[in-house]
Design a binder for these strands. Structure first.
Lengths: 129, 129
DNA sequence: ACAATATCAGTAATGATTTCTATTATCGAA
DNA sequence: TTCGATAATAGAAATCATTACTGATATTGT
């Protein structure tokens, strides 16, 4: 069987994500990890981000523009994507389970959950314009 | 100013999407269009799919696994993605505007709308297992 | 300490999408 | 109906994000 061995790189990747709320890309994680691990490889970052999101310790966000982003916060929540500056923000709502349940009524398979991406203009970009 | 000129290829791409409910990828559109346009270029397909979704005549779906998919149905609806066979199905719900409104209450920018992707196992895959 | 093997760094390869360039098609105006 | 401006094309090359490969290193149970 495949056992999971500890890795300092993987631990550091997860710790880094926990300190951020801006949903960084693999590239940004890589740049920051190089302080602690000057020789870390981008492949290692990608491999561990994929592993961590597979086992549910982080969340992968596919926004549709640019690279995937990663979120260290795995509490259920939605995301907002600004169409001007492309920033990504958390959006807490307590109706998520209800929506999955409602959707299940109209569906003949089995629903496990859902993701939602809200789009619009963020507060900062509104001020600037 | 940039004016839009008619193109038989673009028209055919849109017409093809209207005949399908399975949300094909650019590659699949390309393969099918070659019947009518033996020399059509994949670049042309991508360019027109991007243009059509920019002007709101089709919808682009970024599923997180594999290539983007495209939907000729622009009536508001959600999508379901099967985690077994990766098929994509429409999921009609009449609470979409209400969810955007609800989310707006907790957000300091301006929300235009949202996309949601439900995941789980489709009816066919349940039968097979 | 040793053996088994998961993980690594570094690099090459892949897949999806975009960009570039010279040619062709569209369309309003003459 | 032709002309000129330019949007759109085919085909190919380039880019971007991500994954796979390879030989070396780190981790863990015994």
């Amino acid at each position: 069987m495949r056992t999971l061995k500890h890795s300092r790189q993987r631990e550091a990747i997860k710790e880094f994500l926990m300190t951020r709320t801006d949903h960084p890309t693999a590239d940004i994680v890589y740049d920051n990890l190089r302080n602690e691990f000057p020789n870390i490889s981008l492949g290692t970052v990608y491999r561990n981000l994929a592993l961590l999101s597979e086992i549910g310790e982080i969340q992968k966000l596919t926004t549709g523009t640019g690279a995937d982003r990663f979120d260290g916060n795995i509490n259920p929540h939605y995301h907002f994507i600004c169409k001007e500056c492309h920033c990504v923000q958390d959006l807490k709502m307590d109706t998520m389970d209800a929506l999955t349940e409602e959707a299940s009524k109209h569906f003949d398979g089995k629903l496990d959950g859902h993701l939602a991406y809200f789009y619009g203009t963020c507060g900062d970009c509104i001020k600037k314009s």
